[in-house]
Write a protein that binds this DNA or RNA. Structure first.
Lengths: 188, 188
DNA sequence: ATTTTAACTAAACAATCGTTTAGTTATTGG
DNA sequence: CCAATAACTAAACGATTGTTTAGTTAAAAT
């Protein structure tokens, strides 16, 4: 018995996600979000509650989007080789249509966080990190010659490495990043 | 023929540096800097010109402070082993007196930068990064069995790794970070 | 002792931040 | 057709951002 929304929440949050990904949370203002999402502040607040709400939904959207490469990892059954491929897949995924390297929205957000941060955000971040680590662990189970402890340690090694790669991707060049990956997966 | 400054610029910039290191540039306001530095906004502006000026001087101060471990690396002549030691030294250096992990001021700042950033800051950052890479290269020259190309690639590998470690140090625990370092330096 | 000059205090600056609200428009159910 | 309700526009909110400025205080030079 009332007016219909003129926008689709999933559509506008994807636009917000792209802006936050490229631009960072702190340096993105509500004014910029308004413009990018194509809707009024009123609509943003009625749909998402707050700027943090926009971030939280954007992270959810990001996780849906990155499923393209996490699902590929999940479905792979070639152990460490699949994990290495994920590192390269991530680098491609991190670039926008103009080849601008945006890193990882989750990692970027984590890097922006200091003491004062919102707990819903931090828990979203650690959930995501844990999910990726579990994917690594899953693939490491395909390496039959490894002990449980070795698999756990390798998973930690890889999760710290991919976090580092995501951060470094915004600073170093392609060649340096590829050298990094090749050395991470250099086998003894 | 005029009044004397009641503060020492090196002293107050060190205080600013500690706050920016712990708290990040964007999330630290002039009000907070006033309080931490113990001087008025007027004094901050007359001494450092702008908030960015405070950051630039803080980075210089940071580089002086980190010389404790970079000099150790410079004086070492045990090749890759010395570089590995630098990674561990950095982790200790990154913690404050309450064991709070602050990462690296330079890396933190780099992670905060997006398109719009000040060029003086970015050039400070890349200069520092280059300096560390050169230190790595220097130690790699002590590995006589490596070719020039291999040394250069290893230097890239290590500089991306230490950048990644600095970012990751604020998110992951001690055990995970040590596993990372051990694997980075695992020899074939 | 007086003048000069710079460092100080404290208030104000315009701009922008995230958020809210008053008023209007459009849609739907009765 | 009308009443009800939610989505819209647009302006304003108070707070805080980085920066500046007027007025006072103190120290050195003549």
């Amino acid at each position: 018995m009332a007016r219909k929304k003129e926008y689709n929440e999933e559509v506008v949050i994807e636009k917000a996600m792209h802006l936050l990904w490229k631009n960072g949370y702190e340096t993105t203002s509500m004014q910029m979000l308004e413009k990018e999402m194509g809707i009024n502040k009123f609509s943003i607040y009625s749909s998402f509650g707050s700027k943090t709400g926009v971030l939280l939904e954007s992270i959810k959207c990001y996780r849906k989007k990155i499923k393209v490469i996490t699902d590929k990892l999940l479905k792979s059954n070639n152990g460490i080789k699949g994990i290495k491929q994920y590192f390269y897949d991530f680098l491609l995924f991190s670039k926008d249509h103009n080849d601008f390297v945006r890193g990882c929205l989750v990692t970027n957000t984590a890097n922006e966080l200091y003491d004062n941060s919102d707990s819903k955000v931090t828990s979203q971040l650690s959930t995501f990190t844990n999910e990726i680590r579990n994917l690594f662990l899953n693939n490491l189970k395909q390496e039959v010659n490894l002990t449980e402890k070795e698999r756990s340690e390798q998973a930690d090694y890889f999760i710290v490495s991919i976090f580092g790669l995501a951060s470094a991707s915004k600073v170093f060049n392609k060649s340096q990043l590829h050298i990094f990956i090749e050395n991470i997966f250099k086998e003894e």
